[in-house]
Design a protein around this nucleic acid. Structure first.
Length: 392
RNA sequence: GUGGCUGUAGUUCAGCUGGUUAGAACGUCGGAUUGUGGUUCCGAAGGUCGUGGGUUCGAACCCCAUCAGCCACC
């Protein structure tokens, strides 16, 4: 257990995560590190496949761990709260046992979902009232009950309940929203301090930096959240329509403030290039639906560029899906066969492409880690960025 | 042989009493997707309306002939 300073009681607390910085790259803010959790060690930089409903769509846990070598996956508080519901999660003994994923897990708080897909919602100081996208039933999320819910789900890392303002929010709204997110954060940590993990393994709570694309708000937010002495920090509200250079500038501004000795998690990002650029700027953790969602729709990421497997050009291409890939789907199946499956609407097309993409993302961050440790990350990144943006 | 029905996009079909550039779905081709409501979303190409005449200012539509398919009856 690793002691951290508690914002509420002004004392050192034993908590769940142990972050060890191994190497920082020369000429870059990139870092290689390890994060020890109650369910195993995560090597960073890391990509966390998104498993909204405690399932990474289309991929067996066996392949996630064995083929893609995922070390940590996400689940979502909003979705699990609505279905199957907390009574099931509690009876199952938490999400690890329920889903039979024995490695580290992280739950998003549902803040993003409430603002992106729930029906009519009403925001107040208290929290957010919304109606379920499944049956229209009405619910209230507050910082307190979202922490409670995440205690019941039992992921190793929980996320604070934040407001996600739209990407094009004007300054006044962004500033007002940020104030609310910060007040909610105090309540999240208060509830966190007053509650205990339910299943015998420790849980960490990450605050989320907001502030849209306004650098002064981002800096203010980073300064505010870091005083909680959290075990890790997230950057939210990016990759929501702003140009990539703006996103990179925000990351630089925030990471200049966040503590060096804690993991930094860029939420919801992104493309392979986005991830490399963010690693270069000192981000350690990522999640994104892109490898699975785009995979379901026939888009493959490879080290040589992007492939739309439905394109006619692959019709008679019997070469492997990705000769450089390490997952069994990469070499067992041909492009022509995968194209056929995708066009025929076969379920396996989505499965093969999802596994390929997730394996590719994880391999990319593993390679990034190796090059950070080897000391040539900036040069390698430069070479990769050029290749990754090609369309095959 | 006689009578009837049907021929419109690759496919299945709409298409009003004759009235602009003949539509849809599926298929084909291409694009999108960033803390997952995704078999999703967006776009494009594709037609000498079976063929040949005729009527009309104007025909997928009306008339004649003809070809093809299906049905019924001798």
């Amino acid at each position: 257990m690793h002691p951290v300073f508690c914002y509420l009681c002004r004392m050192q607390h034993a908590t769940g995560l142990k972050f060890e910085l191994q190497h920082t790259a020369a000429g870059s803010a990139a870092r290689a590190a390890t994060i020890a959790t109650g369910h195993g060690v995560i090597e960073t930089p890391v990509f966390m496949p998104v498993g909204t409903a405690a399932a990474v769509k289309g991929i067996y846990h066996r392949d996630l761990a064995g083929e893609a070598r995922a070390s940590i996956i996400l689940a979502n508080t909003y979705h699990l709260y609505l279905r199957p519901g907390m009574d099931v999660l509690r009876q199952a003994g938490g999400v690890h046992k329920f889903s039979s994923w024995d490695g580290p897990m992280l739950t998003d708080s549902g803040g993003f979902q409430v603002f992106s897909l729930a029906g009519v919602r009403k925001l107040s100081e208290e929290g957010c009232r919304f109606s379920s996208h499944i049956d229209g039933s009405k619910h209230l999320f507050t910082p307190e009950n979202v922490v409670d819910t995440q205690r019941i789900i039992g992921a190793d890392i929980m996320m604070a309940f934040d407001e996600c303002p739209p990407g094009d929010a004007p300054y006044d709204y962004a500033a007002k929203s940020l104030g609310l997110t910060h007040r909610w954060l105090e309540r999240c940590f208060s509830q966190f301090a007053q509650t205990q993990p339910l299943y015998g393994h420790p849980q960490a709570l990450f605050p989320i930096v907001q502030g849209c694309t306004y650098e002064d708000l981002r800096v203010r937010s980073a300064e505010f959240v870091q005083q909680f002495g959290a075990e890790g920090y997230a950057i939210g509200g990016l990759a929501v329509g702003e140009p990539a250079p703006v996103m990179y500038r925000m990351i630089e501004a925030v990471n200049a403030v966040l503590p060096q000795d804690k993991p930094r998690y860029l939420m919801g990002v992104g493309t392979p290039v986005n991830i490399l650029e963010a690693i270069d700027r000192g981000v350690d953790m990522f999640d994104c639906v892109m490898p699975t969602r785009n995979g379901r729709n026939g888009m493959l990421f490879t080290a040589e560029g992007m492939i739309n497997i439905r394109n006619e050009k692959w019709r008679n291409d019997f070469s492997p899906v990705d000769p450089d890939g390490e997952a069994f789907v990469d070499t067992q199946y041909s492009k022509a066969y995968l194209r056929h499956l995708a066009i025929a609407g076969e379920m396996t097309a989505a499965q093969i492409a999802s596994l390929h993409n997730v394996a590719f993302y994880l391999r990319l961050v593993r390679m990034a880690r190796e090059h950070i440790l080897a000391g040539d990350f900036p040069q390698w990144k430069q070479m990769m960025v050029e290749k990754l943006t090609r369309k095959l």
